[in-house]
């Protein structure tokens, strides 16, 4: 089992060479998982790990090679919250809205990000630096409210801390 990355890789490098290599790697994954259980979901997960998101071209490739109708694949991609067809920012801010975080003010943080940074959930800042997601419980309820930026988890965040936290990322 390959190591799963919680946060997708950066997508800034979308040059031709990268895209070409990415497709090669996806092709490899498809070949590896071809006949296995749940192949489409595994392939999509890994493809997203490589590209960062699932643009139509990737879906079309997977659809063709796994012989799954495109509409069915789209249905799968949009059903699971793990998948995204939108490019992500360099840093993905995930605001946890699990119960513990919610009762401890997760919503306030979200509101602040909306108000101060114009970030809507699933949105991205114009400079492509940050994108915002709301997520289900991260399982760090003891540290609520938490936000995750990339692999970092910020604990007991108060709205006043947001500015300092975001300044840590360039």
């Amino acid at each position: 089992m390959a190591k799963q990355k919680a946060a997708p890789a950066s997508t800034t490098d979308t040059g031709r060479g990268f895209a070409g290599r990415a497709f090669q790697r996806i092709q490899g994954i498809i070949d590896d998982t071809g006949g296995q259980a749940g192949a489409p979901i595994r392939v999509l997960q890994q493809a997203q790990g490589i590209v960062g998101y699932l643009p139509p071209t990737v879906l079309k490739t997977i659809s063709r090679d796994l012989k799954i109708p495109l509409s069915e694949l789209y249905g799968v991609v949009t059903f699971y919250s793990f998948f995204t067809m939108q490019p992500k920012g360099r840093h993905v801010i995930q605001v946890c809205l699990g119960t513990a975080c919610y009762v401890k003010g997760g919503q306030d943080i979200l509101n602040l990000l909306k108000k101060e940074y114009g970030l809507e959930p699933e949105g991205i800042t114009p400079d492509g630096k940050f994108s915002l997601e709301t997520i289900r419980c991260l399982g760090c309820c003891g540290l609520a409210p938490v936000i995750a930026i990339g692999d970092d988890i910020h604990r007991k965040v108060k709205p006043g801390h947001i500015k300092d936290i975001l300044n840590m990322y360039h």
């Binding site: 089992m1 799963q4 259980a37 979901i41 595994r42 999509l44 059903f79 699971y80 919250s81 793990f82």
Partner: peptide, 8 residues
């Protein structure tokens, strides 16, 4: 085998 769920 592990099957990683995709968030639903």
């Amino acid at each position: 085998d592990i099957f990683p769920g995709a968030g639903a």
